[in-house]
Design a protein around this nucleic acid. Structure first.
Lengths: 166, 166
DNA sequence: TATTGTTATACTCTATAACTATA
DNA sequence: TATAGTTATAGAGTATAACAATA
């Protein structure tokens, strides 16, 4: 583990001819100046907290996203879920099957397209998502504890500008 | 693909008893209110642009991070790279081997620890990283084109607060 | 002919256990 | 006894091709 507070020895990062330099304190200031690096590190932190906090519900971020979209869009199809979340259809099949086996969602025939299936929350699915969305709100507040409400709004607004450049 | 601008048919999201609802326009406003969802979507966008833009250098984000840390910390060890970037040691071995075979880095004995190996850029590695870091700067400017320089600084500052909560 | 949902499958990424050489 | 680097391997995540049923 890189030491953070000890003085650098004389031979560290010497760089003079013939010497083999070594470093005790890592300089990551360049990487930390890059948007991509910071976005990725922040995302990994939020996901880590999400996995811990949502463990009682046995929901990964993607399961939560799928269930939440079904909750707010009853009758949504698999194809629509894939397009909205950027998931490839073959990779959604297993998730939907698992959620159906857990009796959190049900499949119903689509009213106007015989190829498609409408997805709906069951009663226990609705109960779970009410609790899970409440927990998610607390989770967000905890992760962003050092941000003011105004800063959190700003952060989300600027992130949207990155992935919704239209 | 969800349609975005067409009026919702009468039977869409009806929800009355006996009907099977369907949706034409997906409401993702709840997910978009969550920090984690926005952070992940923004990160995926930046990574996608990174992969396209950096294709000429054949560098994934993780390769760029490793080479950049070696460039700014000559003699850094594998263990230090792992700790700084959150990579597990077994998963770094292959990356370092590949970069060495491409003659972008070289391994030299650590001056004070016989177990460790110091990593250094070769001359061609230095050349590549000069070009790659210049390209990365253009990439960042492109991704954040709709943000003012001040907004970009704010975004990075707030992201740091998420993953550096100390 | 195109699209929805699906199976099979391959590739990448991430994680754990265990070994060696050295501290 | 602990640590740096490595090997082997397992699991999760992501990708493409191809198929049956329906539009």
């Amino acid at each position: 583990m890189p030491q953070l507070r000890q003085p650098r020895p004389l031979n560290a990062a010497a760089g003079s001819a013939g010497e083999t330099p070594s470093v005790d304190v890592i300089d990551s200031s360049y990487l930390e100046s890059l948007l991509g690096y910071n976005a990725r590190r922040a995302t990994l932190t939020v996901i880590e907290v999400f996995l811990e906090t949502m463990a009682p519900y046995q929901l990964r971020p993607v399961d939560f996203s799928v269930l939440s979209l079904i909750a707010h869009n009853p009758g949504i199809t698999s194809r629509q879920l894939c397009t909205t979340l950027g998931i490839l259809p073959p990779n959604l099949v297993g998730m939907v099957n698992t959620l159906e086996k857990r009796e959190l969602i049900s499949r119903q025939p689509h009213p106007r397209d015989g190829r498609a299936t409408g997805l709906h929350l069951t009663q226990s699915g609705e109960k779970l998502m009410r609790d899970a969305e409440a927990t998610a709100a607390e989770l967000e507040a905890g992760v962003a504890a050092r941000l003011s409400p105004s800063e959190l709004r700003t952060l989300i607004r600027l992130l949207k500008k990155i992935y919704q450049p239209a």
